[in-house]
Amino acid sequence: MTNHARLRAIAPPLVVGVGGLALWELVLTVLNPKAFVLPRPSVIAGKVVEQWSTIITATTNTGFIAVTGLIAGALLGIMVAILVSRFQIVSEAVTPLAVAVNAIPIIALAPIFNFWFGLRSPRSNQGIVVLLVFFPVFVNSVRGLTEVHRGQLDLMESFAASTWETLKEVRIPNALPYLFTSLKIASSLAVIAAIVAEYFGGDQAALGQLIVQQAALSRYSSAWAGVLAGTLMGMALYLVVVGLERWFMPWRVTEIERSGS
């Protein structure tokens, strides 16, 4: 990429981001400098600095739930997908079912999980994240593993390739774009699910509890600081997934590089 192309790719989001923050700050400074329900960005940033250690502890605890749940849910989803996709009849029956089950508000299971796995145990919240991550990863993986170009399968068959070789050379590479699409969704979902599940139970020193308690005490800027921490964590996880996507699929030219050239 030339410098010019890189600038063209990076400048617009930068302008929107900085401009948006500046506008938010400016409008509130002029109209309502004491706004406390939706405070100015500088006030929220100040709170983060002020309560640094509390926020870091809470973020670490929530992050642990989100990351472990994400990894477990994704691995489970991929493994079951590989298993199911070996039998066409099973995958044709199970996929619409999984899509429908995915429409269930899984987060509503949180109180039941709390009683199952213990109110203060991390297990129940991890369980919620695992379930929430499992379905999109499973559904997309099955699609990626089964919606393979007929000609590529015929080619492998002409080589007398084994099922495993076909899986490794054709089906899995074909499934990767589908998988990463679902992982990108799941990565932000995992953080939000962990935070919401923390309303019901789990560790007390966690982002969900922090946000809810600060909001209940009308300390809105502190609650927003917790939201900011959650946002940054979600973005970080998302970027990790994007990084993994590039690592695993170097043949896929990314959007920015293609349009910038």
């Binding site: 953080v191 946000i211 927003w224 979600g234 973005m235």
Partner: peptide
């Protein structure tokens, strides 16, 4: 805009429903 549409979903807005 697109990066912010994506980032918007990492903001746990559901967490601040009372606000």
């Amino acid at each position: 805009l697109m990066p912010y549409v994506v980032v918007s979903q990492t903001v746990p807005l559901v967490a601040i429903a009372p606000i």
